[in-house]
Design a protein around this nucleic acid. Sequence first.
DNA 1: AGTGCTGCGACAATGTAAGCCGCATAAAGC
DNA 2: GCTTTATGCGGCTTACATTGTCGCAGCACT
Lengths: 344, 344
Amino acid sequence: MSDARDTLFRYLTLLQLIPRSPGRISTPVLKEKLAERGFHIDTRSLQRDLGQKLSTQFPIGCDDSQKPYRWYFDRAFQCHLPALDVPSALTLVLAEEYLKGLLPPVVVGQLTPHFNDARQLLDGMASNGLSKWARCVRAIPNGKALIPAELDEAIWQTVAEALLEQKAIDVMYLSRTSETEKPLTLHPQGIVSRHSATYLLAHVDGFEDLRQFALHRVKHAAFSQRAWQARDDFDIDRYIQSGAFGYRQGPDNVVLEAEIARPVAWLLQETPLSEQQTIEALPGSQWYRLTAQVPDDQQTLWWLMGMSTNVKVLAPSAWRETLKANAAQVLAHYQDTPDTCDMH
Amino acid sequence: MSDARDTLFRYLTLLQLIPRSPGRISTPVLKEKLAERGFHIDTRSLQRDLGQKLSTQFPIGCDDSQKPYRWYFDRAFQCHLPALDVPSALTLVLAEEYLKGLLPPVVVGQLTPHFNDARQLLDGMASNGLSKWARCVRAIPNGKALIPAELDEAIWQTVAEALLEQKAIDVMYLSRTSETEKPLTLHPQGIVSRHSATYLLAHVDGFEDLRQFALHRVKHAAFSQRAWQARDDFDIDRYIQSGAFGYRQGPDNVVLEAEIARPVAWLLQETPLSEQQTIEALPGSQWYRLTAQVPDDQQTLWWLMGMSTNVKVLAPSAWRETLKANAAQVLAHYQDTPDTCDMH
DNA sequence: AGTGCTGCGACAATGTAAGCCGCATAAAGC
DNA sequence: GCTTTATGCGGCTTACATTGTCGCAGCACT
């Protein structure tokens, strides 16, 4: 774009081209990339920019162990333009609280520079006003927080890049059934993060069918020589709804009718089950009548199950039956084995 | 800090001082803030920087309806130094997918410039390689996603700022019980986001006890004249664990023992319930034996309830009894009202 | 040893930044 | 209605910064 001889803008472009610390970029490559963007400058100028101007003002490092020097940004550095405002910073902190329970630590770690920036800003305020933000913001996750699966940082990076740049990858995969590591060549098609585990959707080289690979069972990943095989008919939403992750779901919504206890009524008034939802008080009791259009999926059924005695489902009858059968089965479980092991 | 006469650095500082669009900053104020940071420049230079240099290269606007001109950044603009890498961008997209179901739209909206940045980067890649990132990344939330409560942007901003800068606020609050709006003066102490609703912990002016205020029931908020009342004995974690959000929890962990079905065993092997967890196959069946140290809280109990027939709890006996009683009660519910309304 | 790549110091020509001044405009005060 | 004050803006000048060029020095590879 701009071939304006603006030095400021060239500096900024330069700063944007230097990757964060695990990454590196060499001087000649930088020169080339700058040229691509319309900055045709002499190598010497670039060297001066890096070595004398930028590296004195920014946390920029230089790996001079090999001759085309490699430049990189400090791992923790982050700078936003415009600067973060207070509400945004607080939102970031909240977001981090939530995400820590949802994504593998490494993946959240990918964003630490951003979160650090927010924390720094809030800490800075704290030093004046003494508001200890860390002590006044919490996120309570939805449902039981399982511990996110461990995941190697390099693997996440490789897989993410392969998926987006449409490359095939060679992996060592620890099969769930056989407990042995197998080398595979995969053609990534999608990533699904469910609860606390993250899965790669891909098909194995030479095969046509799509399979799921838990990322934390990938032990090694590298870009492959093989060309990436496309599947243009692939639709991730259709794939998920087809039941691949245990969330089989009818194509249409169903109308849920139920009687709900007062606390549940309050909850649903504030955070509704769906856009179409009505709640009416049932005269002469603490109960309410709920009607809502909800998806016909496992999630909703689980939610109803968790509400246990606080919700009486009236329709659809299939759910009613499922819940009833479930309760009967659970009860049977516990009556089969009487409480001989009571430890009280 | 740096009184280095570096123009680049001054430009950057300047850019950081200009707020995003709802915000505005006037030229004299900018001059003052720059001086605070060690940049003592002539007003004329500042004017030139803004009007001729920056505003041609950046999406910066100027409100010249009143005489000290007011400057602001384009609402959607975001620039990171160093630029986002591909894995980070993908992580941001994933994070947004999750957060959309967890935080009020307005709060997530606070971060849209960040997410936009990521999307832009990925879109840029797509135009080359045609990898439609939007079609290959999904997050499946944990548990039933209720619709996050509506919340006004200005209210979130006011509350966040008040909390962090320790100011009291005047609000109009829609009481849950009386259905009427009441004016209150609050002294914010904390924010808790639970599931899809966000609560302000504060005490009412003149009272000592802490109360929760659902942010979506706050209809109006403004900074108050009154001085903020501190409560230095306040500990948000203790407050939550004391049961304030329906998550009463014993102080100690308990040892959960249970028999679990094969799919659950797989799930827990990948995303454990806790750090201390063992799973052993039970010979001659598809069942496994689980032992885990878990917190004694409602969440865990709910999770067990949701697993229904796939988990048979052996200990602690209190949970066993609870689950059993629950099942009995649910069953009773449905048998009280026989299936006369079956619609099949 | 020769060749090519890279980094670096020096230098001169060019370009630019920034203070200063004066003028124009608009709002506030008398 | 006129002055005062605050701000924006164009132009001028100078000191200073930027940048291409050159020469030299390591270093790797041949």
